[in-house]
């Protein structure tokens, strides 16, 4: 029989819920800077988790997710500045528009494979950036600012910071929960099969393209909502900042790679490590970037499955009940009744 539960993963959900509650109470135990930093951490954790879903599970190694960060940000600014919509509504609207835009993008880029797909997504993101630079109503290549009066509509300074914080936490938690539910579903099995061997998965009757499209659209919507929230706090948008391949893809890939691709826990550990490095070293200027590069190289050489991969392989740790293990029938310890019944792969 197969089982997904380990000791760690059984107490995992309890820890996760306790941690979520503790984090939701952050406005009472940290100051505004703490909230701002945590909010940024959540945003990167969510972006990295979504990229991991694409690259680590669906085999879609994209370097163009900045297209959706920027699209989300521009949607929010456009609605707030040109249509006078409360910027908070811009966040779900960003998700919706990105989901719609993701379909033609997928139609174009899914024709490409491997490295060609990666470059193709980057090209699409550049097209988005150049398109935004032509959109003079939002400042064209100069970019534009969200005036203080627009933010005043949301509430006063303290209330705003708390609201943004909770939004970031909710978006990140929802992203990770959605990824977990997706991976535990029938589609999750299909994704695991595609990840391991696309041809075999196809031969077994898995609808590879449709599954990938669904994942791509979900990731686009999530990425755009996070992008909208990030730029709502930055207050200023420009094509170069909103569609920055460094900020929204290179760093995100760095996080996923050092944490561990193909595991839900990987990007979370990677985010923690990245922010540890950034908070302690970012004043060093170029040296800081050299350190990041060295860390990435070291992890790729010494722990190709990322740091979480290293821990999980050595210690059998698993925070979320996802991996399926074979359990010998005879000597198996009594499995508690709470064990999720193992599902059969039935595409």
């Amino acid at each position: 029989m197969t089982a997904r539960v380990t000791h760690g993963s059984r107490i995992g959900p309890i820890i996760a819920i306790a941690a979520l509650l503790a984090l939701a109470a952050a406005p009472w135990w940290t100051d505004r800077q703490g909230l701002r930093l945590l909010g940024e951490i959540y945003a990167y954790a969510a972006l990295a988790s979504l990229w991991n879903l694409l690259a680590g599970y669906a085999g879609l190694v994209t370097v163009g997710q900045q297209a959706f960060v920027g699209l989300g940000a521009y949607t929010l600014f456009g609605l707030a500045l040109l249509a006078g919509v409360n910027p908070l509504w811009g966040i779900p609207a960003a998700g919706l528009i990105a989901a719609i835009a993701a379909v033609p993008v997928a139609a174009l880029t899914f024709r490409l494979r491997g490295a060609y797909f990666a470059i193709g997504t980057w090209v699409v993101a550049e097209v988005f950036r150049l398109g935004a630079a032509q959109f003079s109503a939002l400042g064209g290549g100069s970019g534009t600012s969200l005036p203080a009066s627009v933010l005043a509509a949301i509430g006063n300074r303290a209330a705003r910071e708390q609201l943004f914080y909770w939004l970031a936490l909710a978006l990140a938690a929802a992203t990770i929960l959605a990824i977990l539910l997706l991976l535990r579903s029938r589609h999750g099995l299909a994704l695991a099969a595609i990840r391991d061997n696309e041809t075999a998965a196809r031969a077994n009757g898995i609808e590879v393209d449709r599954t990938r499209l669904a994942v791509f659209v979900i990731a686009a919507a999530g990425t755009a909502m996070i992008g909208a929230l990030i730029f709502l706090q930055k207050l200023r948008i420009s094509p170069d900042a909103a569609f920055s391949v460094n900020d929204w893809t290179a760093l995100v890939i760095f996080i996923a790679v050092i944490g561990g691709i193909g595991r839900v826990e990987g990007p979370l550990l990677g985010t923690a490590l990245f922010f540890l490095l950034r908070e302690s070293l970012s004043q060093l200027g170029s040296l800081y970037l050299l350190v990041l590069g060295a860390v990435a190289i070291a992890v790729m050489l010494l722990a190709p499955r990322g740091l979480w991969g290293l821990l999980a392989d050595r210690l059998g740790w698993q925070l979320f009940p996802l991996a399926r293990r074979l359990e010998p029938r005879s000597s198996a310890p009594p499995v508690p009744a709470a064990t999720t019944p193992a599902r059969e792969a039935s595409p």
């Binding site: 505004r32 970019g143 706090q233 207050l235 004043q283």
Partner: peptide, 21 residues
Amino acid sequence: ARDSQSSSSRAAEVASELILR
């Protein structure tokens, strides 16, 4: 003194840090 790294995003970030932290 903080480095904006020539990026408007980073400039907003360090400005917010200087204000809040």
